[in-house]
């Protein structure tokens, strides 16, 4: 009970520059267990950089990221060292990439892609792994008869659903998603969003979702963060930020979408 009152992930004062570009400028955020936080903002505003800094993939020039693990221990993401970080990424975290080819192993079958993550957390029994992989393929609406096909034989939407199955099969506590519906056509996006919505609420996963799709943010997120030029310009309850935006940039962002 206590643990739910504390953030699962906290970032304080994250700054990161690439030469003259300040990709992150004093960014602080909190994420609570089971909560979906969406990060929106224009291209180049630092969303992906923030996600990678949160996940320990990119080291900030300043600031820190604290993750509270399943046992309740507070871990400094940028101080724990590579092996500990890799273990976390394998067990308690997941990452869904915009380009499924970056999140999948293209030379391995669909079943192998899902089973591999299970094996990485200790599953050994071949039959169980295959059964669980089949279950997850069904769950993401891929026919189990495709279990031995490679992702290269799949459509973009199927590939993205496979990536989601691969990520969620180990039931991570925290998942980072970078434009999970980017590059797909609209009808495929809607199906994927609905799938993500259902899985995330069924499994009670905490999610940091980077998206430029305001409607997706409204559908999925409990809270919204608006970024511009590496800074958080506005944040709060999703529907309040979208329906009663205060910052000039948020008003511009909201006014440029049709009835999100």
């Amino acid at each position: 009970m206590m643990a739910d009152d504390e953030p699962i992930l906290s970032a304080r004062g994250l700054s990161l520059s690439f030469g003259a570009v300040r990709a992150l400028d004093e960014v602080s955020i909190d994420l609570w267990p089971g909560e979906v936080l969406a990060i929106v903002g224009e291209s180049g505003s630092g969303k992906s950089t923030l996600l990678r800094a949160l996940a320990g993939e990119m080291r900030p020039d300043a600031g820190r990221v604290t993750y509270r693990d399943a046992s309740g221990e507070a871990l400094e993401v940028h101080a724990m060292g590579e092996p500990a970080l890799r273990r976390l990424a394998r067990t308690e975290w997941g990452f869904v990439r915009q380009d499924a080819r970056d999140g999948l192993r293209m030379g391995v079958s669909a079943g192998g892609n899902v089973g591999e993550r299970l094996m990485a957390v200790g599953a050994r029994h071949y039959g169980d792994i295959r059964t669980e992989a089949e279950r997850w393929l069904e769950r993401v609406e891929i026919s189990p008869s495709r279990i031995d096909d490679r992702p290269g034989q799949f459509s973009g939407g199927m590939r993205q659903r496979l990536q989601i199955a691969r990520t969620l099969v180990t039931r991570p506590r925290l998942v980072f998603m970078d434009e999970p519906t980017g590059g797909l056509d609209v009808s495929v996006q809607a199906r994927l969003l609905d799938l993500i919505r259902g899985l995330v609420s069924d499994l009670g996963i905490a999610v940091v979702l980077v998206t430029h799709d305001i409607a997706a943010a409204r559908l999925l997120a409990h809270r919204l963060v608006v970024m511009r030029h590496g800074r958080v310009v506005e944040e709060g309850l999703t529907d309040r930020v979208l329906d009663d935006p205060r910052h000039p940039y948020t008003q511009l962002l909201v006014s440029s979408v049709l009835a999100a």
Binding site: G236, R240, D243, R246
Partner: peptide, 9 residues
Amino acid sequence: MRLLQGNYG
């Protein structure tokens, strides 16, 4: 009404 629902601040 929206204030009472928390939709507006």
